[in-house]
Each structure stands twice: as structure tokens, then as C-alpha cells.
Amino acid sequence: MQTQLSINGESHELEADSRTTLLDALRNHLGLTGSKKGCDHGQCGACTVLINGRRINSCLTLACMHDGDDITTIEGIGSPGALSPLQDAFVRHDGYQCGYCTPGQICSATAMLQEVQAGWPSHVSTSLEDDVSLSNEEIGERMAGNLCRCAAYPNIVAAIREVAGAGEDA
């Protein structure tokens, strides 16, 4: 199948079997190996990318379903010389150990902060209608789709808190 994908602002023509997930297309066909395959079943979040600005599990969608879509992967979030604020904060807060889940964590957190900006409540929000205040509990709930087997969670939360400008948790 022929699919046109816009990835990190660059247009790619993909010729692949219809079974190819977006994750496999990125990693195996297009050489973008920043997105990781953890569970391949949408449970771990290592494959998180942004489609038209929204975070999704790239392992649970077919590349051919995204003809014409704008995709942002970790390679498009920042680069070694120009880290995004979240990438920089993850480095300074040591928000990882082995690093395998980190691209997914950062893509997920990037979109999660936009969801907060848009006023989306979460399962732990006391009110559905008030503005969201990003407590540690809120960050934990909103990042529940990203697992870290090294359990670097406290530092991941600290990095996200800093970028969100949420200060120290009470």
C-alpha cells in the first residue's frame, strides 16, 4: 500500500503491507528509531507519538490509516543541540534510568501539557469544571499510559512539574 505521511514536517512516501503498524513504519521503513516498541499492545506507552498534535500509541494503529496526517516523533520534538524544555528537564532531573521509555514519556508529556492548557479534566480532578492544578497526583494519572520499568517516576514527575511551572507539590 502507498501511504503519504508527513513526519516532523517532512513528507514521506511509504510502500508497505497493509498490516504495517505506524510504529513499524517509523522504525523499520523510515529509519526513525526514536519511538520504541515495548509491549506492542498499547499498554506501555513506549511507542507514543503525536498525530495532528495528539498523543497516541503508534503500535495500535496502521500506517495506512494515517495517509496525509501530521506525525511528530521524538526526533521532531528536539535534537541534541536544541532540546525541548521537557527533554532538558528530563536530563537535569535524571528522569530515566535505562532510557528505553523516555521518548514515549516525553512525547506523551508534551501532549499532556497541551491537554491541561485546553482545560481537560482527569480521573483525579476534584471538579470537572474548574481549572486544572497540576499536582503530583494529576501528573501521575495523566501519565498512566507510560510505564517505566526502572521506576524513575519521581524524577519524571519532577521534570514535568518544572516545565508545567507548577512549582513544588504541597
Binding site: 498499547g42 506507552g45 507514543t48 495528539r54 498523543r55 497516541i56 500509541n57 495500535l60 494503529t61 506523551s108 501532549a111 499532556m112 491537554e115 479534566p121 482527569s122 480521573h123 480532578s125 495523566r142 501519565m143 498512566a144 499510559g145 507510560n146
Partner: peptide, 11 residues
Amino acid sequence: LAGASGQLRNK
């Protein structure tokens, strides 16, 4: 909001 994860709810 009690179901799945942020990524899954988007899809």
C-alpha cells in the same frame, strides 16, 4: 476518564 490511558482515549 476512569477508562484506559490518555493515548488510548485520544484514539
